[in-house]
């Protein structure tokens, strides 16, 4: 009996694997979906930065909150540039805030994106110390990394 059950489980598992392997690829995301996904991704940075900012301004939060926020930023910084900025997602598509110039200067924009990761790593290290001065310095440096791309390639929000 046990033998037969195992067989059945195995068969189900194999067919599920086959199904996943040969399932038709998901339909390509629309530009709207891609822009939305990018905006959601960027909000992970913003949310983390906001938490750290509040802590530094004395407006609430703990060192643990800062550490979680720094980890969230670090995770977001691992995002794949090419996947986040696919062609066809420049403004004004789907309220995109990315200037078309970004795609005309891809190596520069990509480097700006790559520069965020080491800054995020330092923010994680600073958050571990719990020292306000170190966190402030690391946040400022990380902010600079964000602002570099925003200055060149993002449309003004207001």
């Amino acid at each position: 009996m046990i033998h037969r059950t195992l067989h059945a489980v195995f068969a189900v598992a194999v067919s599920a694997g086959l199904f996943l392997a040969f399932a038709p690829a998901a339909p390509a995301a629309t530009p709207e979906e891609l822009v939305k996904a990018r905006q959601q991704h960027m909000k992970k940075f913003g949310g983390g930065m906001q938490t750290i900012g509040k802590f530094l301004k004395g407006e609430g939060g703990t060192v643990e909150d800062v550490q979680k926020a720094a980890a969230q930023i670090d995770e977001a910084a691992k995002g794949d540039f090419t996947a986040l900025f696919p062609p066809g997602t420049a403004a004004p598509v789907a309220e995109s805030a990315a200037k078309p110039e970004l795609w005309q200067n891809l190596p520069k924009a990509q480097q700006q994106w790559v520069d965020v990761k080491p800054a995020a790593d330092k923010l994680v290290t600073a958050a571990m110390t719990g020292e306000k001065a170190q966190i402030a310095q690391a946040q400022q440096a990380a902010g600079k990394a964000c602002a570099a791309c925003h200055e060149d390639f993002r449309i003004k929000k207001n």
Partner: peptide
Amino acid sequence: WSQGDVEAALEMGMLPDGDFVGGSMAEVVR
């Protein structure tokens, strides 16, 4: 905006929602 929000925006360009200013204001901050 709290007073600290204004100071943070001037210091590093951070807006109250954790976003960072872009365009010409990023240059002014820098």
